[in-house]
Design a protein around this nucleic acid. Structure first.
Lengths: 358, 358
DNA sequence: TTGTATGCGTTATCAA
DNA sequence: TTGATAACGCATACAA
């Protein structure tokens, strides 16, 4: 009367084998190699399993033995939940999971706060590889991932190590935006960019900070702008550049307000993301400035909301970026660490840019 | 000259201890209980680790020993990648990851195709619990998850077992939509709903199929409509109900077209999701039917795009649903399997409903 | 502060 | 077709 499953220790492969008077191998085979077993014995095993409440081989023990976790880890810039508010990150995830689905491996979203030095979650993640999405190059989480004896693919960052890389030509793409504006006649501009370092920092950005930015993507986009405008005779160190830590429409709006307060005479706001560009339009509209008649606005990424809004932007293949990252990591034959994949971008002139007002 | 790390078997806790002439416990402590160790010994350990290329305790082995995976699994209706195309699912994920971040556990997106009977990924997932999001009640993946000896929280489905539940009153919420339309005078309507079973099936839905739907949410929403309209004197079995397997704006549009072909005289299209409602508006506009002057349209969910478009809908707390699910699973003190959480919804009259044209 | 002994639950290898 | 044996790499109770 004490055979109730709750008082008994949980059944294991071994206890099941003992119960049936067969070897553990046979039980294991019943689950993993059904053809190595007579059907009737297999039936007996499965039936005993149900009777004893044996839930099947323990995944962790199996992983230990097979040295395969069956999952890849994803490291994000920020708290995982932030990613779901960022349309570009969502698109990246879509592409990445496309490949994970195909390869039948799970995707582990690793919890990592940008501020915390607590890297334990990265060290303890049971994964066969890492995808690192848009992290600053001095992030301890990145370091911890690279220290693990598993392959890694880094997105939107330079190659710090033997990891594979996926990215775009940020400087070149941003240059197209700059040349477009320069061609229209804009010389007095303002820039809204995303965080340049791990510490929370909102406000005007010095030249030194621009050049020392740890977020490769932002640094390169700014560099593209600087090169183009400098060539066009604009004194880059006079151009107001405002940084926001948060990546949201509201942050883009407030940064735009700050840019305008630094130079009310600008004829164009260049945002390093579409989300910010949408915020810029919002802020300008609130101030009864017409876009593009009074002020032009540009974005970056090519997310749906921005394209719908007609924002002049650079479309990057966000979904494909995720796919390629996943493919690089999961492709069976590959052992070529150190590959670098530069995806193409497309400049998309929209309805938010026009010649400056006189 | 053969001490190169690649020819030597990978370092382990044991080999490191042997190298240093200390016990494994001490090495383990160096990583997990730094205070149990003299700082200088710890330094020695860490230094030797670096020298030998020891990457720190193996996560899987540790998990096996501690009986903790440090992650929860998420099971979705469909391929993981689909979730990132569905705004409601993305919002749910945002809420869920909020709680995961807080509890510092990872979220494992378990690969599962709805068609495949291949449930191995669920059985092999190294997780401490499952969140099941919007699955039909006959899905083998669901069964596999419930068979695992870990807690589970089910969203948007009835309690089949000892799992916790999070959901809304789908029937009641849909009834509000129906009563709103009935109050406006609508009697001749058409319905666009999501998949009702696991098999791909597009087209008109019989009454029997409505009642036998394995997707609890859809079944209840349809039931709410049936009850309200039947009470209002409408013969429900004459109401065109069209099902789509895909959940996309395009599918909503095509389903709307099919509804209109079944009864060109309808004055309102009721969609069971906002995504479909957006498709309905699209299709009607294409046909030069004005919304709501010619035809009214309603949605469900309250996603941003729909609210922005002024769709009359029911807002459900999508983000909070994810949070609550996570909380139920992760809350430390809880061992109360069988809890049921019904979240509130808000009817949101918009600009897509009006009295029917005469 | 450090070490010893044991077990976590499985699968690979090889032999029967 | 089945079984015996030996890892897989670690953490923890307990002893020293």
């Amino acid at each position: 009367m004490d055979s109730s499953p709750r008082t008994r220790p949980p059944a294991t492969l071994a206890s099941l084998a003992a119960e049936l008077g067969i070897s553990r191998t046979t039980v294991s085979n019943a689950y993993n190699r059904p053809d190595q077993l007579s059907p009737q014995l297999r039936m007996r095993v499965m039936e005993a399993a149900r009777r004893l409440g044996y839930p099947g081989p323990d995944p962790v023990a199996r992983s230990l033995r097979t040295r395969k976790a069956g999952a890849v880890g994803l490291l994000l810039t920020d708290q995982v939940s932030y990613a779901f508010r960022d349309p570009a990150a969502v698109a990246f995830l879509e592409g990445l999971t496309l490949e994970c689905d195909r390869a039948r491996v799970g995707l582990l979203l690793v919890p990592a706060r940008p501020d915390a030095e607590d890297v334990a979650a990265v060290s303890r993640a049971a994964v066969d590889g890492f995808i690192v999405y848009s992290m600053p190059d001095d992030d301890p989480h990145l370091e911890a991932a690279l220290a693990r004896p598993v392959p890694a693919v880094i997105c939107d960052q330079p190659g710090l190590s033997g990891a594979d890389l996926v990215g775009i030509d940020d400087a070149g793409a941003m240059r197209q935006v700059a040349d477009h504006l320069i061609g229209l006649g804009h010389r007095r501009i303002g820039v809204v960019c995303m965080r340049l370092g791990r510490a929370v920092m909102d406000g005007a950005v010095t030249l030194a900070r621009q050049h020392a930015a740890r977020y490769h993507v932002q640094r390169n986009r700014l560099a593209g702008l600087e090169a183009a405008f400098t060539e066009a005779g604009v004194a880059w160190d006079r151009v107001p550049v405002v940084e926001r830590f948060e990546h949201s429409v509201a942050a883009g709006a407030s940064a735009t307000a700050e840019v305008l307060s630094m130079d009310p005479g600008i004829t164009a706001v260049i945002a390093t993301s579409d989300v910010y560009a949408l915020g810029a339009v919002e802020e300008l509209t609130r101030r009864h400035q017409r876009v593009p008649e009074d002020v032009s606005v540009t974005g970056f990424d090519g997310v749906k909301a921005a394209l719908d809004a007609g924002i002049t932007t650079v479309a990057q293949p966000v979904v494909d970026k995720g796919r390629q990252a996943g493919r690089l990591l999961l492709e069976p034959g590959r052992r070529a660490q150190g590959r670098e994949l530069v995806l193409p971008t497309t400049f998309m002139p929209g309805r938010t840019t026009a010649p400056p007002r006189l």
